[in-house]
């Protein structure tokens, strides 16, 4: 096996990972493409060694050619990562067409989840206190007015 090949694959993984963590959508797609290349090379490393192309015939001695299975897997990988890259590019294009923004935004909803707890507790406290005073199940239905949901961030 070749250490140079393994090193090249790991450099592709590292730079792909770095780009994947960026905010700009184009760079994220570049990162996905680099990771694809890295994976294909990694498959070649697993093939063991370089050698003759796996073109065989009745008189070929099996061990003189390289392992063909990693090639077949890599072929699939190349085509699939092409499909993904094309689709991501189309998404980026669409996103730009709609928002004129090329950045991956933070998900505000994710942050609000944590902040909502305090408000929910206060609201529940207040509602329970409002209801504490009617000692009957047959009174006017004033406590059934829907609680306004608008006082959220």
């Amino acid at each position: 096996m070749s250490i140079a090949l393994a090193l090249t694959a790991s450099v592709l993984f590292a730079s792909g990972t770095y780009l994947l963590l960026q905010r700009t959508l184009t760079r994220v797609i570049l990162g996905v493409a680099l990771l694809g290349h890295g994976t294909v090379l990694l498959l070649q490393v697993s093939g063991g060694r370089a050698g003759d192309a796996p073109i065989v015939g009745p008189d070929t001695v099996g061990s003189s050619v390289v392992d063909p299975l990693p090639h077949a897997l890599a072929l699939t990988a190349i085509v699939i990562s092409f499909g993904i890259t094309a689709f991501l590019l189309a998404l980026a294009y669409r996103s730009w067409a709609l928002t004129h923004d090329d950045q991956v935004q933070d998900d505000i909803e994710d942050r609000i989840v944590a902040r909502r707890v305090e408000l929910d507790l206060e609201r529940s406290e207040a509602a329970a206190a409002r209801e504490a005073e009617d000692l009957t199940e047959f009174g006017p239905d004033d406590h059934r007015t829907p609680i306004d949901d608008e006082d959220r961030p």
Binding site: A9, S15, G38, S46
Partner: peptide, 13 residues
């Protein structure tokens, strides 16, 4: 993070 992933991939290969 990127270097860690790269180093791991190399070691794993």
């Amino acid at each position: 993070v990127a270097l860690g992933v790269g180093a791991f991939v190399f070691a794993m290969a």
